[in-house]
């Protein structure tokens, strides 16, 4: 199934990027984007998920928002692989500014530099951000 198709036999697969820039529990953005990503996985597009600025806190290990009586959706990022979403990127500078390293993250990611991230964004058909 595809979102749209032109007249040729092959449906057009678009390059999508979801940009996460917000920390996870203070606002609803992180959870909303995550749900959008899980739904978009059904449409078999070329999905790229990026974490930069405070967005890198979304995938920090050891979160326990149950003490705030909130759902621990950090566990849900680990389901992304099963949903076929394998292109996950973290911006190196954002991670380092926040004193984090790859070992602090809950899922395996590809670490890329700021410039590379900009170029990757430029190569997308659609960018969605929060």
């Amino acid at each position: 199934m595809s979102v749209e198709s032109d007249n040729s036999a092959e449906p057009k697969v678009k390059r999508f990027m979801y940009v996460n820039r917000k920390a996870p529990h203070g606002t609803v953005y992180a959870l909303e984007v995550l749900e959008m990503v899980l739904i978009s996985a059904m449409f078999e597009q070329d999905v790229h998920l990026t974490f930069l600025d405070d967005g890198v806190f979304q995938i920090k290990k050891g979160q326990n928002p149950s003490v705030l009586e909130m759902k621990d959706f950090s566990k849900t990022y680990r389901a992304l692989d099963g949903y076929g979403i394998e292109k996950v990127f973290v911006e190196k500078e954002s991670m380092e500014e926040r004193g984090l390293s790859q070992d602090d993250l809950i899922i395996p990611v590809e670490i890329i530099g700021r410039e590379e991230l900009g170029a990757l964004m430029e190569s997308m058909d659609v960018v969605l951000s929060a």
Partner: peptide
Amino acid sequence: EACLKRAT
């Protein structure tokens, strides 16, 4: 600032 850091 976030934009200027990444905009090519």
